[in-house]
C-alpha cells in the first residue's frame, strides 16, 4: 500500500492526478472509479452524492457525479472517456462510505472506457502516481491526511 503524507494511495490503481480520482480495471475492461483518500481529506465528511445516470457518456475530466461536503459541491471527474454502466447505490444512500472506504465500498461509478488504450496514457500508477501526488500536495499546501 502506497502512502503519501499519511494518505493511502494503492499502487495497483490508475490515478487521474488533476481530478484526484482513481480507477480500478475489472476483468471485463470496465473501470470502477472513486475519490482518493487525499480528495476525501480535502473535502471532509461527504454528505451527498448524486451520480450521473447509467447510460450517460462522459468525457475525460468531466463530471460523472457530484459530491457535497461542508456545503461545498464539487464534481467527481471521469478519469477517462466512457459510458457510465453502473452507479454505487450504497454510496447514494450513505455517502460517508466514500470517506470510510474510498478504495473499496466507496467506489462511486463504473465506466466502460471508449478508448482505454489511448486514454490510459494520461493516467499514472505505481511509484509515478505517488510522486505526482506528493508534488500536488506540496503545491496545495497540504499538511497530511
Amino acid at each position: 500500500m502506497g502512502t503519501v503524507k499519511g494518505c493511502e494511495l494503492p499502487e495497483d490503481l490508475y490515478y487521474h492526478i488533476d481530478g484526484n480520482v482513481w480507477a480500478r480495471r475489472r476483468e471485463d475492461g470496465s473501470l470502477d472509479v472513486g475519490m482518493t483518500a487525499y480528495a476525501c481529506s480535502l473535502a471532509g465528511q461527504i454528505v451527498s452524492f448524486t451520480p450521473r445516470k447509467i447510460g450517460k457518456t462522459v468525457r475525460q475530466d468531466k463530471s460523472c457525479g457530484t459530491v457535497e461536503s461542508g456545503k461545498w459541491v464539487g464534481p467527481v471527474k471521469a478519469p477517462v472517456n466512457g459510458e457510465i454502466v453502473a452507479v454505487n447505490d450504497a454510496v447514494v444512500a450513505d455517502p460517508g462510505l466514500i470517506n470510510r472506504d474510498p478504495y473499496g465500498a466507496g467506489w462511486v461509478v463504473r465506466l466502460q472506457p471508449s478508448n482505454w488504450e489511448e486514454d490510459r496514457a494520461s493516467l499514472l500508477t505505481g511509484a509515478a502516481a505517488l510522486d505526482a501526488f506528493a508534488a500536488r500536495m506540496d503545491a496545495d499546501g497540504f499538511g497530511g491526511c
Binding site: 481529506s41 480535502l42 473535502a43 471532509g44 461542508g70 456545503k71 461545498w72 464539487g74 496545495d140 497540504f142
Partner: peptide, 10 residues
C-alpha cells in the same frame, strides 16, 4: 489561496 482544504477556504 495557499490551501486546497475546503473547510479552510470557507
Amino acid at each position: 489561496l495557499g490551501t486546497a482544504d475546503m473547510a479552510a477556504i470557507a
